[in-house]
Simulated scan of single mutants.
Amino acid sequence: MSTAIATVLGLGHLRPASGTWASAAAVVLAVAAYQAGGALLVPVAFVLATMLGFWAVPRYLAGRSDTDPSEVVIDEVAGQLLALCFTVIPLWRHGVPDLLLAAWPGWVVPFLLFRLFDIWKPWLVGRADRRHDAAGVMLDDLWAGLFAGLGSTALAGLYHGLVQPWLG
């Protein structure tokens, strides 16, 4: 069970860039949930993925020398879902009916920023990654998700507050 969760049903074995594949899968699921009227499923999925990740990753890593194998991608799913919460919930609260096409920056920007922070590993992301333990595997992606969510919110604020009014 811990292997299925840690690798997100084997998704972590896709190559190249298993973390990007897992992040993309999280985006697809979040957009599908939103489109089906289940925007609140995104934060629920984030909490569930985080809890399952903190349970499964230590079990999966037990007895292994590699403390952050590339096939472990539940952390990317949790981090990506966190980043998406920052845009999905406000869009839902404002009654935006179509996330896929009409509000596409609401999923594209968090995806791109999450991948950037997950790969670049600035500040707290890198600090968590350098723990070299199961908690660090989860925490670096949660920090990346938080920063991606905050960055997405800041960019949306700049666009809607400055650029859009100027464009008329």
Rank of each mutant, 00 (worst) to 15 (best):
W21E: 14
P122S: 09
R59D: 12
P110L: 02
G95W: 11
P90A: 04
V47R: 04
T3R: 14
L40Y: 08
H94S: 14
V88D: 06
G149R: 00
A103M: 10
A45D: 04
L48A: 15
G63L: 08
G136E: 12
A4T: 10
L100Y: 11
D129W: 09
G95Q: 05
D118E: 04
G151E: 03
W104K: 08
A6Y: 03
Q80I: 06
H160G: 11
L99H: 06
V73L: 11
V47F: 04
F111P: 09
S65A: 13
A128N: 05
A32K: 07
Q164Y: 06
G37C: 02
L14M: 08
D129R: 15
A24K: 08
A128V: 13
W92S: 11
A6P: 00
L116K: 08
V44Q: 05
D98Q: 03
V28A: 15
G157Y: 06
M138Y: 04
L146W: 00
L155M: 06
G126H: 03
F86T: 09
D66V: 02
L40M: 15
G53E: 13
L113N: 08
K121R: 10
A56G: 03
F111I: 03
A83I: 09
L11I: 14
V88M: 07
T3Y: 13
L48Y: 00
Q164S: 15
D68I: 00
I89S: 02
W104G: 08
V42E: 09
E71P: 01
R59T: 07
W120R: 10
L146A: 07
W21A: 15
A4V: 13
A32C: 12
A144N: 07
L158W: 03
A83Y: 09
L150I: 15
V47Y: 00
F46A: 13
P69Y: 01
Y34V: 02
V47D: 01
W55Q: 07
D75A: 01
D68K: 01
V57F: 02
A148R: 01
K121F: 03
S18C: 04
V27N: 08
I74N: 10
A78Y: 01
P105V: 05
M51P: 00
M51F: 13
C85H: 09
L48G: 06
D68Q: 04
L100Q: 09
A144C: 03
L29C: 15
L142D: 02
V125R: 07
M138T: 02
V88F: 08
D133V: 00
L91H: 15
V108M: 02
V163L: 09
G38W: 11
L167F: 12
V42L: 05
A33L: 14
V72W: 00
L101E: 14
L48H: 03
E76F: 06
I119G: 08
L113Y: 04
I5H: 03
Y159F: 13
V28P: 10
G168V: 04
F147M: 14
P16M: 04
A78V: 09
A144M: 11
A154N: 02
D133R: 00
G19I: 03
A148E: 08
G136D: 11
Y60L: 05
T7E: 13
